[in-house]
Design a protein around this nucleic acid. Structure first.
Lengths: 156, 156
DNA sequence: TTATAACATTTCGTATGCGAAACATTTTTA
DNA sequence: TAAAAATGTTTCGCATACGAAATGTTATAA
């Protein structure tokens, strides 16, 4: 059986990851609530604004959610007139997602730099030394690669 | 409006966190499926095994889930005879959770070091230089503190 | 050219996951 | 001592969240 000290080490390594996702969710919820959508919807709107015409499979990679999950979120956003869903004429399997005018407005209101709690807290977080942030990301990606069993590919 | 480069930087910093949680979930799912429970149930069983008698509010902190969420997960685990739920005699608001014999057995089977994908991949990940892991955790905690607006407390 | 495989999305069933509200209990305040 | 506040848990309503299966479409193999 894996020893308790080993389990504690695992715990210690993985807790910051769980904690950060939770904090992000809560900060995003503050902005989302203010404009009457959910935090996941806000995240999706933001991602579509940054990648107009994106399909579900790509969006899935960008936001790290299953495509089945995204299908439902997108459905609700389309029904609320915040997103437009089109089929690609080149490949009818593929969706092309776009923000609607009211979706863009909603996004701009949520992420108004003077009101957005998420953006303000992120700005503070990103004031950390750039070298520290780069180091953290580098080690995280190495850690991830090992967990995935793809560590060879990350050795650069 | 927050500039695109700033949004991309935010994205770059937060993606590893989302990715790691997803990978952890998927690895835990492999172990959980093998013994017929869900990944969250497995995580809760593990935490209760390491903290016998723990209550929901404490458990909430340990696993970073809302107590309302945990209430449901515990309910299902009790119904499956994998956990025992008792009320504290000192404070009747407080639960005291314990693994049942079959819960312990299920946990040991899931986290059998020779079968557990999560433990094996974690072992590989933890073979990274200890200094790297410490550095990652330190910077993550500083990042978290800033996001929470409690960065003063982390300055040591 | 046809059959098979792969891809992208949707649907389904079940388990989360959250915050707010409700309830019971304990602690603190007046 | 009684009222108010705080704590711990449960319930509620709704939105995820996932993997598996189904569906339609495109690409590849035979």
């Amino acid at each position: 059986m894996t020893t308790l000290p080993e389990l504690e080490k695992i715990k210690r390594c993985t807790m910051p990851f769980r904690e950060l996702n939770r904090v992000l969710f809560q900060l995003r919820t503050l902005d989302a609530d203010r404009v009457g959508i959910t935090p996941q919807q806000l995240m999706v709107l933001n991602e579509v604004r940054n990648n107009p015409g994106i399909g579900l499979d790509q969006l899935s990679e960008h936001v790290q959610l299953a495509s089945s999950t995204l299908s439902g979120i997108v459905d609700r956003l389309v029904k609320s007139d915040l997103l437009r869903r089109e089929r690609s004429t080149r490949d009818r399997r593929q969706l092309e997602l776009h923000l609607s005018p009211s979706g863009l407005e909603k996004l701009q209101e949520a992420y108004d730099p003077e009101k957005s709690v998420l953006l303000q807290r992120m700005a503070v977080a990103l004031e950390m030394p750039a070298q520290d942030i780069e180091t953290m990301i580098r080690i995280q990606n190495q850690f991830l690669a090992r967990l995935r069993g793809t560590e060879e590919l990350e050795r650069t």
